[in-house]
Design a protein around this nucleic acid. Structure first.
Lengths: 108, 108
DNA sequence: CTGGTATTTAAGTTGTATCTAAAATAGACT
DNA sequence: AGTCTATTTTAGATACAACTTAAATACCAG
């Protein structure tokens, strides 16, 4: 998969942030989300194949961690993303509101 | 739309590259692709709403151009992608050249 | 005004990435 | 061996972004 596609999926971006500066077992990652472990596992596979996370086995767990160097120019994008994500949620909500308003009144 | 999503669509990335350092009319952009003008127009709208291209009117044409500054950290990603694509072309050309050399009986 | 070109908007179709659920795998422990 | 736990893989459902076609808009020329 193309590097850009890999980090463009919001769930994968959040996973990447979770293992940005610490190791985490797959289960600990999955526990952060309201989706099945299977879904998270599939995302981890994509991230691993892209080289954006490393995997190591410990007991019967698999432990993941971001490989920042592998991200190249995408690294700054990831770092930017979480710095601005809260603001962006607000902006998107406002944009939604404007769209809804325009539908009601066709050209404001 | 999220900046990352905007750039992650391959068609939009190529459009952005087309208008990277020159102005182009919507029609000239659409002519580069094997999809309908409508589809290209929709992509241009997304790029414009993200702020990644500027639009100006000239006669009955609309002329677009990339706004590199607006891309922030994504700028490097676009440039990387473009360079990588060019490298791919170059690699193919070199492979062709090697094949030609071998036909002549040249070095290994 | 009419006709023509450039482009967008509207409405509906389709391909595909993400998801769920269930079965399979791998290692630890007894 | 057998059974735990952690995780992946397979198979199939779903949601959504990119597309198509057709109609609408905007601008220019006669």
């Amino acid at each position: 998969m193309e590097p850009l596609q890999v980090i463009a999926a919001p769930r994968r971006l959040r996973i990447l942030e979770l293992v940005w500066d610490r190791e985490l077992a797959a289960g600990d990652i999955a526990a952060q989300f309201d989706v099945s472990w299977s879904a998270v596992s599939q995302h981890l596979t994509v991230l691993k194949e892209a080289g954006f996370v490393t995997e190591r086995r410990a007991g019967n767990s698999r432990i993941y961690r971001a490989d920042k160097a592998a991200l190249g120019s995408l690294r700054a994008v990831v770092e930017d993303h979480w710095r601005t994500s809260l603001d962006r949620v607000k902006d998107l909500a406002e944009a939604e509101q404007r769209t809804a308003d325009e539908r009601k009144g066709k050209r404001g």
